[in-house]
Computed example of a mutant assay.
Amino acid sequence: MRALDLDFMIGLVPILLGYLPLTLFMAVVGMVCALVLGCLLAMERVARIPVLDLFVKLYISFFRGTPLLVQLFLFYYGLPQVMPFLSGMTGVQAAIIGLTLHFSAYMAESIRAAIVGVDRSQWEAGEAVGMTRNQLMGRIILPQAARVAAPTLVNYFIDMIKSTSLAFTLGVTEMMGATQKEAASNFLYFEAFIVVAVIYWIIVEALSFVQRRIEVSLNKAFTR
């Protein structure tokens, strides 16, 4: 059994950290877009607009029921064959689209559950003072739903950061792609994957700490 090449592992750290901004860029952009889309889908699921509701259910079912990797391949390799105008799409763009659509389906259900979980008396109180539906949602329902949904949404962001590692299958050189290249050029796969695993682990633990702080802050705000 050979010893670990510590010099290679230490030297690999700054190389992989150089690709961290791209990893975070894909995750942040994907999270923002998924959150916006997820909110819209959740609002529709609560309103249950005829016909549109059927398409939204189908959308959520498809993106929750198929693997993210399959979806990424579908967007990057499949769609350009039937839609030639998409042939210029880059791997980063395809990865962001895939992350957005995939996680928006999960976020939609979490946000919908948080909205319908608000006590019915809150709805009735808002209606009793003459609030419109938009005012009721913006001033009463959504702030309370956000408190419930926030921890879950942070978890989705954590999952999204980890899922960016699939972007290397589209030819994107982010942290995982860089790890693959460095490992292949040195034949030190074990050491390379240990390093990238630890980097992802540290990022996730940092975000988990932020998540706990958010929960504490929200709980304080609602217990005063």
Rank of each mutant, 00 (worst) to 15 (best):
I60W: 01
K57R: 10
A221E: 08
A150D: 00
V172P: 08
Q71G: 02
S121F: 01
A145T: 09
R64N: 05
I158F: 14
R112Q: 13
M160Y: 07
A105S: 11
A47I: 07
D159K: 01
L12N: 04
V195H: 07
H102G: 03
I158T: 14
R45D: 10
S185N: 15
V196C: 11
A145P: 11
Y19F: 13
E44P: 11
M83T: 10
M26E: 04
Q144K: 10
P84F: 03
V70C: 07
P80A: 14
M89S: 07
R212C: 02
K162W: 09
F63P: 01
G91Q: 06
H102C: 07
R213K: 11
V198I: 14
L35I: 00
F85L: 05
G65Y: 03
F157G: 00
P67T: 14
F75N: 04
Y106G: 05
E191N: 02
M160N: 01
S121G: 15
E182M: 09
L79Q: 02
S121P: 05
C33E: 13
F55C: 01
A178N: 02
L207W: 13
A95E: 00
L17M: 09
Y59S: 00
T66N: 06
V116C: 07
A3L: 12
S110V: 09
A197H: 02
G91D: 04
I111V: 12
Q144P: 14
T164P: 00
I158V: 15
A95H: 00
S163A: 15
S110G: 06
R224W: 12
I202L: 15
A94P: 06
S208A: 13
V56F: 08
G130D: 12
E174H: 05
V196G: 11
I140F: 12
K181W: 00
F103A: 06
A105D: 02
G65R: 03
L52G: 00
P80L: 13
F168N: 08
Y106W: 10
T169S: 15
G11V: 05
P80Y: 12
A178S: 04
D53K: 03
P21R: 14
T164Y: 10
M176D: 05
R48M: 13
F193Y: 15
R2C: 00
Y76A: 03
W123T: 01
G126F: 09
L86G: 05
G18E: 11
G126D: 11
N219W: 09
A105L: 09
A167S: 10
T223Q: 07
T173N: 08
G88W: 07
G117D: 12
G177C: 01
E182A: 12
V196K: 14
M26I: 07
L16W: 08
L170P: 02
V196H: 12
L35Y: 01
L166K: 09
G177S: 05
T90R: 00
F55T: 01
P21H: 12
G38A: 07
L58Y: 03
I49L: 09
D119G: 13
I141T: 06
V129G: 05
D5I: 08
P84K: 08
S87Y: 03
L37E: 04
Q93F: 11
A95K: 01
W201K: 03
M175E: 02
A27C: 08
N186T: 14
A167G: 06
F63T: 02
M89D: 04
L24E: 04
E109C: 09
V198E: 10
G18S: 13
P14F: 07
